[in-house]
Amino acid sequence: MGCFHSKVREIPMEDPFALASETAFSVSDVEALYELFKNISRSVTDDGLISKEEFQLAIFNNKKKENLFTSRIFDLFDVKKKGVIDFGDFVRALNVFHPSAPMEVKIEFSFKLYDLDNTGFIERHEVKQMINALLCEAEIKLSEETIETIINKTFMDADPNQDGKIDKYEWKNFVYENPSLLKVMTLPYLRDVTTAFPSFVFHSKVED
């Protein structure tokens, strides 16, 4: 008694046809993404769900390495706030990163990503927190004065009404003037996921 409780909880794959109909992905793409999802979701616990630890592990190859940005992205993927990402969450969130996703959708996601306190504004202290996280991650030291100079300059450009916080409208204008900021919001891989995960054909429900 007691030693054999490791039975895997099988969670059925959400209907690939439905997911394809509401995203830029084809049914085959969704099936290929399921192969990727399975790989990530079984890396720590084989429960058909991605935990924050597994997400972190997939990005950094190191589950102990806490990262503010990975944590934020995970929280945005976890739309139902269950503390885990299911396959539907995964596909819908990756859809934002699809090269064909509208720029507006990417702008909205990036705004939420950087609005750490979810107040509807990107505030100075949040920008400072993110710069410090980046510097810590990259093991770079900058003086407090340099950091303040960078933030001042950024708010001069991104916060035209100078109220000390960037609202959605200001963010949108700022991103239109600096489109390179959206580069992290596009994953070219997603245009061709079936090539990256060809094993999906063994489980495909799509007929030739």
Partner: peptide, 25 residues
């Protein structure tokens, strides 16, 4: 030069924002 970049250009250099690594699993 970090001072010539805006804060978000710096932030977007984080590896934690680079989801390409998901595809290496």
């Amino acid at each position: 030069q970090p001072t010539s970049m805006n804060a978000f250009e710096l932030i977007s250099m984080s590896k934690g924002l680079n989801l390409e690594n998901l595809f290496d699993t």
